[in-house]
Write a protein that binds this DNA or RNA. Structure first.
Length: 111
DNA sequence: TGAATGACTCGAT
DNA sequence: GATCGAGCCATTC
């Protein structure tokens, strides 16, 4: 039973992140109600592999903009390449202009 | 059933 | 200002 509603909500939210933008675990966790469930968001990403439709987990980084989850992709560089292909500049596993690229669901989906 | 783990975050030193 | 430790919550062993 690795598919709780929490995962579904996380995936649904991540899928709404527009290309070229990124989001953080903490923001997602907070938006879903439990600001302290950031680790569960990471869990959801772990399970999201092979999901359909695909979950753009590469657009989710930690609060510092670091690609902390790149090791869980097929290839460590895959996450960075996916982001760069969408226009996100990645340097040393960190998203450049992170503040500008940040996509906050609490603001973007408030309308 | 209890203990350990994890793609995180915050507060204290 | 940087580093260390504890908390959180669902899943797994």
């Amino acid at each position: 039973m690795a598919e709780s509603d929490f995962y579904q909500n996380v995936w649904a939210l991540v899928r709404q992140i527009p290309p070229g933008r990124v989001c953080t675990y903490g923001f997602i966790a907070r938006y879903l109600g439990s600001g302290r469930s950031s680790r569960l968001v990471g869990w959801a990403m772990n399970v999201s592999h092979g999901q359909t439709p695909e979950v753009p987990a590469h657009r989710v980084v930690n609060r510092l903009g670091m690609l902390s989850g790149k090791a869980h992709f097929g290839h460590p560089n895959q996450m960075q390449e996916l982001l760069e292909s969408e226009g996100v500049v990645v340097l040393d596993d960190c998203v450049q202009d992170f503040q500008a690229r940040l996509w906050d669901p609490a603001i973007e989906l408030r309308y």
